[in-house]
Write a protein that binds this DNA or RNA. Sequence first.
DNA 1: GTCTATACCAAGATAGAC
DNA 2: GTCTATCTTGGTATAGAC
Lengths: 208, 208
Amino acid sequence: MSSVTSAPLGDTVRRLSSEERREQILRAALAVFGARGYVGTTTDEVAKAAGVSQPYVVRLFGSKESLFLAALAMALEDLLAAFRAALEKDGDLPPTTRIGRAYVDLLRVRGLHQTLAHAYLLGGHPVIGPAARRGFAQVWRFFREEAGMDVDEAHRHMAEGMLISTMIGLRLVDDYDGDDSISEIFQSCFPTQLTHVLEMIPRGDEPW
Amino acid sequence: MSSVTSAPLGDTVRRLSSEERREQILRAALAVFGARGYVGTTTDEVAKAAGVSQPYVVRLFGSKESLFLAALAMALEDLLAAFRAALEKDGDLPPTTRIGRAYVDLLRVRGLHQTLAHAYLLGGHPVIGPAARRGFAQVWRFFREEAGMDVDEAHRHMAEGMLISTMIGLRLVDDYDGDDSISEIFQSCFPTQLTHVLEMIPRGDEPW
DNA sequence: GTCTATACCAAGATAGAC
DNA sequence: GTCTATCTTGGTATAGAC
């Protein structure tokens, strides 16, 4: 990625290669899609977040739909890469626990969990639906075939993941201090990484 | 509900009271919101599904936003009512299992699970966000205070619920026959109610 | 590679008749 | 209580210059 081939030497503020721009726009798109959902996102907001013009993001990706598909694909790659890294890296914790940690650490990739969750709810969409199903099945297969979980364990991890994504998307933290039942559920979800999570999670005052 | 006060006697095809219309439109709205999400839903599609005109649904609810809030409130009422009924009705199964079954049976209320899931992802929305958080906390409190679950049990039920909602929204059934990993996860989610579920679940060929 | 200007359409909301 | 007609906004996508 990001090999500079076309930019002439000596440019002070050189234009980026389209590869670099794609990556930059995709990161912005992931954050915005996560916060607003597929339909709720405007290509203009993505453009603003990436610091380019709206027609340019359409130009680069063809359409909002393809942009979403690309962001979704990137999110899944990031997810599986993080899972594989957690699996290979050895440590005192069992592999299954390391994978769970990795999932929570992915909070630092803005919009990842929420964009996946949004995609998962778009099963009725003619083109996003099938892509989302493939992605979901891919994660399941990772649990079963690469991580070596049995059906029950894979099931529990999936369920746990969905709950975590939900709590991120809900911005449950916003009410963390005022509501006892909310701090209770929060603690039950992040028994070990709570402080860490509270720092990384998006809040009401920031759009994403 | 639905006490007829204003319609004159003798009308053959009498106009419905606004209470009746509200209910009818809300049911339609729940189905459409579930399939398309909040932003993806048009008031016109809701109107068509309910058999009335688009301006009329806006007239009756004030705005699309209030319509969504009303549908969300109805979904939560239905959910908690079903849980309470399952809890009170005695049977051979443990209460906790009866509640789980009740959740799956709610599949017959079109769009309920998906609308809740969509609302949960809208935490960043200034008015839907807080409503969704209140609803989520309400369910948690039901588990803890009324159903008498401990934190761990409530947590597992929540997670399981989120996974089930995801699979409905994803329309995973659409690939049920072609993909081994999908039928595997499906069976692990609905060990006892599988046939029942396969009958009730929305498919790709129907919009909702 | 990136922008400005703009065409074009879809959708929420309002006015007002019946 | 319910409709038709319409105003208005906002958002995707295209044209075309630099």
